[in-house]
Design a protein around this nucleic acid. Structure first.
Lengths: 335, 335
DNA sequence: GTGAAAGCGCTAACAT
DNA sequence: ATGTTAGCGCTTTCAC
């Protein structure tokens, strides 16, 4: 059988030039139809749009970005996405970025400084127009890379004294203080803290200890349980500080895990309405905490709002560079 | 004050060429040091690496991608990331992609067909090397765009009869069948189904109805509650089908919401170990379901495994194009 | 309203 | 082991 030459108009992914050829215009006109249809005459636009449809042309933003030096993308770095608290933040920032034509390039650090630096480099190599990350960079190298990138950088979930550029979050130290005082005013004596040992958790821990000392309580105990399930954290806490009468858990999953372990241990019995034998306060205000029995006291934080605000600061350098979204202690049945 | 000419070597983001100049080599040598250090002599490599460090050079992958026609990126489309079930899948696929140098470009459809098409176009314009999405495309246009892109496309969380390219998931229809039969064999009479009306939920619903009919039960009732909280779904279900004695909930959050509503309504009382007055089965096997009281029966699905498998099919077209990861009915206290 | 020329920063292919 | 040439697909700038 006779083989004709390959027909590049059909086989390969069509280019702007192919569209131009088909529509009988110059490439730049096609570019205009795609990006600023209003400045092209109606007839020309029609011809070009027909060609685009016929060829199934999808603009190549890689080429466009190189030519224009604008990628319309934002790099997002989280410790892990499989934690609903950060998933909410990613959801929130996407909700602001996507309607404006920005894409989200997502990377996870796993709380690992080296991996974080690698992911930061990977993100920056794609020339995002801004970086949004949970927390401040873990290493000086990471911070330096971000500074050199000369793009907006928004740190979230904490409020560093000297952010690289911008920060959206709340005072983690304060959260610890508020919970410790709450426990003290409820007459609790032996406080404990269950959570990771990342910087934000440690800030809460410090606030927790300081406030406990200030009101004359003995020093709280700290149980480090990073990377565990709620059940694992609960069991660990129960084993390590069996005599605590009040526990601040790093997140609601840990709080629920602990409550569940307490129930299994028969230490949750109390007449309804009575003060529970052990007070438990979580963080995050998961819906599950409101459905659990006992309902879970918590430090409420609006992760989606953090994401939305971060996206806004990322896109507009004129916006304030420090946004404290605060938190709220919500006291429910668990203490 | 005398103004010198701007020093491009310091101010602007350094380019490969700037590094080459500083190291006294040609640009291509720098490129080699970055990508294949082994093929460059040790001394040259050293000089180049010094220059890279001194300038803080970060390769421009936008330019690299255009030149090499490889973006080292994968487009990921989910209905929403703020649903732990999909967050697990994204986590799983990232865990496979990131170590291989791929970036994840994340987009959300919100279950909206038009938005899905827009996000698909946005993803494709960045020339990802593959697309991984939850479910099959909602529109024919979307499917056509994907086909034309001539890249691996992995649909997840369902197993379409004719996938565009590949699929990783389980049989949603079967899941409905299994739950209905389970209810029937437990002597349940009046079945109900609570969930969204997306395609996957509808497949489960169909299996549920068909199996119920087959065993001679009256037709189950369906409560559509897309986009609601677990509490909202639970309340809605209770209001709409107050006489149901067995409910299949689209996810564990809905199941827990329903259980919680039942408890408030005083309909959960039963001696421990007894068959609950209303049987409830969820889907997803959230940890919370194991901690809740009663513990929640569920269709267990490994979202992270789906993500990992999807990533593998996305990167290797030689792999099987259809992977059924199955599911497992886990019967706990809730029924 | 439309087009021609130049170039974004890099890599493929081919030298040497 | 290193360099030269050409070009990826688009946008910018300046003309007409």
């Amino acid at each position: 059988m006779e083989e004709g030459p390959p027909d590049p108009e059909r086989a390969a992914t069509p280019t702007l030039t192919a569209v131009a050829r088909m529509a009988g215009v110059s490439p730049i006109t096609v570019s205009r139809v795609v990006r600023r249809p209003d400045i092209v005459s109606a007839e020309t636009r029609q011809r070009v749009e027909d060609a685009i449809r016929k060829l199934g042309y999808v603009p190549n933003m890689v080429a466009g970005s190189l030519a224009s030096a604008r990628t319309k993308s934002v790099g997002v770095l989280v410790p892990t996405i499989a934690n609903s608290i950060f998933a909410d933040t990613v959801q929130g920032l996407s909700d602001v970025l996507e309607p404006q034509g920005y894409s989200v390039i997502l990377a996870q650090s796993g709380y690992d400084p080296l991996r974080e630096d690698r992911m930061l480099a990977a993100l920056l190599s794609r020339r995002p127009e801004a970086i949004i990350m949970v927390g401040a960079p873990l290493t000086a190298d990471g911070a330096e890379m971000l500074r050199r990138a000369r793009i907006p950088v928004v740190e979230t979930w904490e409020l560093p004294a000297a952010p690289i550029d911008a920060a959206v979050g709340f005072d983690n130290h304060d959260a610890g203080v508020v919970v410790a005082r709450h426990f003290a005013s409820a007459g609790r004596q032996r406080l404990a803290f269950v959570g990771g040992d990342d910087r934000r958790a440690t800030q809460r821990w410090h606030g927790f200890v300081e406030a406990a000392r200030q009101v004359g309580l003995e020093d709280p105990r700290r149980v480090v349980v990073e990377w565990q399930s709620g059940a694992g954290a609960g069991t660990a806490a129960l084993a390590e500080v069996p005599d605590a009468d009040a526990v601040f858990a790093a997140n609601d999953a840990y709080a629920i895990g602990l409550l569940s372990a307490l129930r299994r241990a028969g230490r949750l019995q109390a007449e309804p309405g009575a003060t529970p034998a052990i007070g438990v306060v979580g963080l995050g205000d998961l819906e599950m905490g409101r459905l659990f029995s006992p309902t879970v006291s918590t430090i409420r934080i609006d992760g989606a709002a953090i994401g939305r605000a971060a996206a806004e600061l990322a896109l507009d350098p004129a916006k304030p560079r420090r946004v404290d979204l605060g938190f709220e202690l919500i006291v429910r049945e668990s203490g």
